[in-house]
Amino acid sequence: MSNPLFKKINIFLKVNEQTIDSYFNANDPAPIYKRQLSQEFEEYIMNYAPSIKRYSTVTYKLNCVNESDKEYLDPLVHAIRRHFSLKKSIREAEFKKFKKRNWVLLTFSLIVVMFFQGVMPLIFNVEHRIHSAFSNALDVFSWVILWKPIEKLIFYWNPFLKEISIFDKLINAPIIIVGEKKEVAPMEQEYAA
């Protein structure tokens, strides 16, 4: 049974003239929609990553108090989506390289094993005592040389796919604009007057 806390992940961001610069790299001179995200802001978003599961939905909830703050929405959303698209493409390239490297290693290992299992027994006569010892050593060597590529191809691909899935959810997350309207309590009205 899945935990209902992980079904909906909301990432809350306050968007206004004072906070917008804190979301971007202070040393990046590019226009606001092309700027890199700051490390602190990326960390804030990635803190949600462990709770993002396969069936989770991620939503950005952007808090805009004034109408003038809404001009910062599009550049911020564009920068977030561009940033995580780049991260996703890097991780996909790493995953492709990981698979290629391990398939090449597995193929090479199989060729070495077939050579030693096929050719070496022909060199030694079956009646010699060294044949059985050498045969056992070849069997152990075969298992050792094949173990690591098989282990990696079976067990180590999941973290790649999980990160790619998280980046995909962060890229395609819907945006909800939340307006904050302050209600003044009766006691505060008396002091304001």
Rank of each mutant, 00 (worst) to 15 (best):
I177G: 05
A192L: 14
E151R: 12
K181E: 13
V104S: 05
F41H: 00
K34F: 08
G118S: 10
K169P: 05
V119E: 02
M120S: 03
D21I: 05
K34D: 08
K181N: 14
K182M: 04
K100R: 15
Y156N: 13
V113D: 10
I171V: 11
L110D: 00
K70F: 06
H78M: 01
F124M: 08
E94N: 14
N172L: 07
K53N: 04
W147T: 13
M46V: 04
Y23L: 01
I164V: 08
M46Y: 01
G179Q: 12
D74V: 15
P31S: 10
E42I: 13
M1Y: 07
E127N: 12
S142I: 07
F41N: 02
S85M: 01
D168Y: 11
E17D: 15
M46H: 02
L73M: 11
Y23E: 02
S38V: 10
F134M: 10
I80G: 05
T57E: 13
A26R: 04
R35A: 12
K169F: 13
E183L: 06
F141G: 08
H83G: 00
S68C: 02
S22V: 04
N125P: 06
N25I: 07
I150D: 01
N47L: 08
K53S: 09
F160R: 10
N63Y: 15
L105G: 03
